[in-house]
Structures are given as C-alpha cells and as structure tokens.
C-alpha cells in the first residue's frame, strides 16, 4: 500500500543479540509520506519485510509523543536525528528529501550494550 511519494534508502544496524557481531543492512523505504513520523516509516518498512517473509527491524519505542524516552536511535550520526530539541518519534519525514539515504544505528556507547538491532540496554 502506498502512503506518499518519497522513496528512501535505509542503512540499518542489524545484530541478532548482544553476543553476535552486527552489520549494516540496506532496505528500501517506498511510498513514504512526509506526514509520517520516523517510526511510522519504520512500521511501513517492517510491514513489507513481514509480508516478504523476512525478519523485521527491532527498535524500542512506546509513547510516540516524545516523553517516555525509549526511542533511542542514532540517525545520520546524531542521537534522535538531525533536528534540535526532539526525540526520534517526533521526527517527521518532511525533514528528509525523496531519494535520501539514511543511516540508522543504535546508541553508540559501550555503556549501552545492544540487545537486538537498534534495541540497547540503558538501565
């Protein structure tokens, strides 16, 4: 199902668990609307991965309104992405352009080991 006109390339950190080595995987995000939040874009990608019989990308999220503090992601080299003063869940796709490549990593810190993909152990 198409939602909008943006097509993006994602390079996302995939790691099975804390013991195995991770690597970047490339995904195509198609038919993205600028009104989607960054996490809703991930929902679209995951839905198509599930439909293709592949494993979705694991990420932490809950409130999706910028207050619970769970959506930990490094986006294009910055925590919570390119915009100041907001969390990943508040970042909307209108901050990106059609054709962009977006690199998504878990929190980069030895203090926060990866549990799976983008999910880290903070506490």
């Amino acid at each position: 199902m198409s939602h909008g006109n943006m097509n993006l390339t994602l390079k996302v950190w995939k790691q099975k668990n804390k013991n195995e080595r991770g690597r970047f995987e490339t995904y195509q995000a198609k038919g993205i609307s600028p009104d989607m939040s960054f996490l809703e874009m991930f929902d679209v990608v995951n839905e198509s991965l599930i439909n293709e019989g592949k494993e979705p990308i694991a990420f932490d999220h809950d409130c999706r309104e910028g207050i619970c503090g769970m959506c930990s992601m490094y986006i294009n080299g910055r925590p919570h992405g390119p915009k100041e003063g907001i969390t990943t869940c508040q970042l909307h796709m209108r901050s990106f352009k059609d054709g962009d490549t977006i690199v998504v990593e878990p929190w980069r810190s030895a203090a926060f080991p990866v549990i799976k993909d983008l999910v880290v152990d903070i506490f």
Partner: peptide, 16 residues
C-alpha cells in the same frame, strides 16, 4: 529529563 540516554551516547567519554 526523559532518561533517554542521548547525552551518554553523544559523549566521547560516555559520561552520564
């Protein structure tokens, strides 16, 4: 503060 951990992740020393 929402306790998201961005400050630690952003710090080259991983300081909290």
């Amino acid at each position: 503060c929402i306790g998201c951990g961005a400050c630690v992740a952003a710090c080259k020393n991983a300081s909290a």
